[in-house]
Design a protein around this nucleic acid. Structure first.
Lengths: 209, 209, 209, 209
DNA sequence: TATGAATGAGACTTCATTCAT
DNA sequence: GATGAATGAAGTCTCATTCAT
């Protein structure tokens, strides 16, 4: 009975709903547990009345999940746009690593995505269901990586003799490792050097000299 | 006022506490959200009275967190033992990938560890604090990988001309990616082939021919 | 975080709070122990939802204590008003004894005050703290008696050659004794005769013939 | 089904029961609410096992009430003994006032008696019931005062032309007022002077010059 | 007899949801 | 549409009591 799906075009989202989404995502960014968020906390932060939230959603869970989905989709769209704007695989890889570095030690959306992907709690599964029910299928991130790498293969920038999905997961895993390294505090290696090595490691494995 | 830390030797854990730990971990494995677990659900599953849980812990949170920590430490110990029992880096890598494959689509402890490591919710931070306060420092998994790879370098099985931490994260990232692939359902590539490629990719990058 | 102090002007007390106060005082009048009162008993009697009580107070104790304080202050105000309306000490004394007689065997506010004054349990001390923190100081009743007797001395109705505080306590003690007598069942003396003697005893001790 | 009545001769009270009584009365003297006392608090203080208390009593209430009754009776016995040992009314009055002064600002048994007498909560009524069921009737204190004053009348020390019960309550009220004064902190009059006046006031009213 | 680990009924309190304004 | 006071179902935790040792 959700009146708002969060997967409609952003321009159609009523202002109060946007305020709710922003409030939820702010609170989550501050370390709140999605399940323990109180409706009053959310509406207070959003600056609207508690009852108003129920004009747009049927339950607290719906509010939180749609807010997370909204944020996720926005991040994915930005990532997709940024990647597709780059014409070479090397540029795309650099863009990806830049994004990761930019977030510093802050939890970021990509990390959150991974968090959700590696989670099988009820909450995550519900988020995933809604993500599924939207235009995107089970895993938009994997598809994006496939698209990027597939195009790079066609352009001859990336080896054609390896299964696409292996390359997708290998690149993804290395980027993810870099991301965890960025958040890790006690590393013996400097981050710029780490980044360099990650970049070179990927190119060496998949790009013909 | 926690009377039980779960970080003492397992042999000292009172039987009722062990029942609690098993109940919590069973329930989490079945997909329950740690924060939404009810005390009565836990004690029912454990087959003990509700009040008994409070003879050993001061709050519900304490019960769940200590149970997770207990499970985590047990898994880490098993992983550590299994890895250290292998004498060559190749055997160790095989063991790691075998373990990952063995869990099939089931959420396993390693994945959970990653989940916690990529999480910054209040619950995770509390778990991490307790893990920290135990003998192990911030990140026992990273230390274990460092130890394994460091020894392999000394044995001449792994290149000595790359920063240890880069190798740690690169190997970790690839294994993690393989793990996600194992859980993923719609891959175009067969899992044994994926495993083979992950294995070869790691050897090719870090082991001198 | 108490939102309601009961010491503000009565006109500002929200209706639900008033219902709570009345319910508590009814139940106490019926012989309930203030500490054993259940929230549900109170709200049921008040005819409001259990949660509503927590919209105005932070704990059960707060509800009960504020209700008692409210009742106490109301009774004190009535007593003060009644006494100050009488112009002669004899009239005032008669009013006091009338009030005591009027309550019959029922526990009344004055008795409760004495009960609280002779009590040093935690509950009473909390009530006293709140009473203290209100406009009145430690002991409004003593101050009222001082005022009454002081004025009577000035008017020449009461001896000026005795310490005021002795007279305060002597009169208070005799009235209190009469009050206990009113509640006592097996007395050999008739109450009207007792009253007469108390009245005469006080006049004889403090009023010049 | 109480196995212990507390009203048997003190010499028959089992040692563990005596420990319980002492523990309860200690805790009450420290300001604990009788109704909120925990069994474990009592048995801990008594230095015996929790289960042991239930070898002698059937419920927590029983323990506390019997302990209070025990203390009360002991105090009454002491008071009675002390009063009866004095041969003149003046000596008896002095003894009474000495006892009151001796307790300083500390809550004492006599005050507690008054507290119970002016109380009509469930707890008090139960104590009173048990006191009733013992040898003493409703109000041993009143009877004691009657006895003392009656004898003084017979000895010609006290006026015979006033109802005995009036004198009982008048003397009792004044002594009680003095007791409250002893506990009161902000009096303008010095306590020795107050005591003197109380003493003289009583003599003047009831003893023929 | 003495014990204290175990129990579960029941209390307090929270908070998602409703609905009259 | 917007609000927030009111609600009560449901969860956490306490603690009197039991009973096997």
């Amino acid at each position: 009975m959700a009146r708002i799906t969060g997967t409609e075009g952003a321009e159609r989202i009523p202002p109060k709903v946007l305020l709710l989404y922003q409030a939820v995502n702010q609170l989550l960014a501050e370390g709140a547990d999605p399940i323990n968020l109180k409706v009053s906390t959310i509406t207070d932060r959003a600056g609207i009345g508690k009852g108003t939230a129920y004009e747009y959603f049927d339950s607290k869970e719906e509010i939180v999940i749609h807010a997370v989905v909204y944020q996720m989709q926005a991040a994915m769209e930005q990532l997709e746009k940024g990647l597709l704007a780059r014409k070479s695989f090397q540029d795309q890889l650099n863009y990806l690593l830049d994004e990761v570095s930019a977030q510093g030690g802050e939890p970021n959306c990509f990390l959150k995505l991974v968090h959700l992907l590696t989670d099988n709690s009820q909450f995550s599964r519900q988020v995933q269901e809604i993500l599924d029910s939207a235009t995107c299928e089970r895993n938009r991130l994997i598809r994006l990586f496939r698209k990027i790498l597939g195009a790079a293969v066609e352009r001859g920038e990336v080896r054609a003799d390896m299964p696409l999905d292996y390359m997708v997961f290998s690149v993804g895993g290395r980027v993810l490792a870099y991301m965890v390294a960025v958040m890790e505090e006690n590393l013996e290696i400097e981050l710029p050097r780490m980044r360099e090595l990650v970049y070179e490691g990927i190119l060496k494995e998949f790009c013909p000299a």
